[in-house]
């Protein structure tokens, strides 16, 4: 079994600094079943990245529980695609893609075929020996994606992985993600700003409130799989769900903006 489960209960994270404290997450509860592709949408700064960081073990919680459970001991529990790509400038594209495998103890000979496969998947075979400084922002994002996939975790945490991509590449990579996920049934938690992207990919969409973030709505996505990203847009249910999510989100985005302005002292 590849998939893992995520269960988060009453999670609270507060950042403290000399300027004061910022409550990023409060009373956040969320459950993702094994093999589910769950999407999160929420206003900017509401704590989405923070949630993923807690799940990846990079940030400790101040209160509440966050558990990721995986059954396969041979596989890493979580792997993350970072919002900015998080590519190491000192490694070549191929070395970056193989990094997770290297950390899992794969020898260079064992890594090579997997790295080749993932480079082909993201269309960067010809850049295998290039350094990140020679790549565009969208290409870097793809490298970060391939690195996480090659790592092959039970739960994949994806932080706006397609945000820096052009529309065509985004469509292609959405299809790649769907194909992979349909094939391996991995659990995916996918953060995005795009409601349409969440509806295209997800089994379920969680809507987060303005900071401090918590889940304020859960929307099940009924479209059958395998999905065709282009055809979905003309489905009448698509527009209805879009409207439902936006009506919840709109108020939160407005609240987040007011709060930002207040903090900036305007």
């Amino acid at each position: 079994m590849r998939a893992g489960t995520i269960s988060v209960t009453d999670l609270q994270v507060t950042f403290r600094s000399r300027q004061g404290s910022v409550a990023a997450l409060a009373q956040l509860t969320l459950h993702v079943r094994a093999g589910e592709l769950a999407c999160i949408v929420g206003p900017s700064g509401c704590g989405k990245t923070t949630l993923l960081r807690v799940l990846a073990g990079l940030q400790t919680a101040d209160a509440g529980q966050a558990h990721v459970q995986a059954t396969d001991p041979a596989r890493p529990t979580t792997g993350m695609v970072f919002q900015n790509g998080g590519v190491f400038p000192w490694y070549t594209v191929a070395e970056n893609v193989g990094y997770g495998l290297q950390m899992r103890g794969f020898t260079p000979a064992q890594r090579a075929p997997l790295v080749r496969r993932w480079l082909a998947e993201i269309g960067l075979e010809r850049f295998a020996t290039a350094y990140p400084a020679q790549l565009s922002g969208g290409m870097l994002q793809r490298v970060g994606l391939a690195r996480a996939f090659a790592y092959d975790p039970a739960v994949l945490l994806m932080d706006e992985p397609f945000a820096a991509l052009d529309a065509q590449n985004r469509l292609l990579l959405q299809q790649t993600l769907l194909r992979q996920w349909e094939g391996d049934g991995r659990t995916v938690l996918f953060v995005t700003h795009g409601i349409d992207e969440a509806l295209t990919l997800g089994d379920r969409v969680y809507v987060m409130s303005a900071r401090p973030g918590r889940i304020i709505a859960t929307v099940d996505v009924p479209f059958e799989r395998p999905r065709d990203a282009a055809a979905l847009r003309s489905d009448p249910r698509f527009g209805a769900l879009y409207g439902e999510i936006w009506s919840v989100l709109r108020d939160e985005v407005a609240r987040a903006r007011t709060a930002e302005l207040a903090e900036a002292g305007v």
Binding site: P76, G79, M80, F82, Y99, G100, M103, R147
Partner: peptide, 16 residues
């Protein structure tokens, strides 16, 4: 510091 965080997310420990 973000680079350290990326490495840790892939299971890197002190030595790595």
């Amino acid at each position: 510091p973000r680079a350290f965080e990326v490495a840790r997310s892939f299971g890197a420990r002190a030595r790595e």
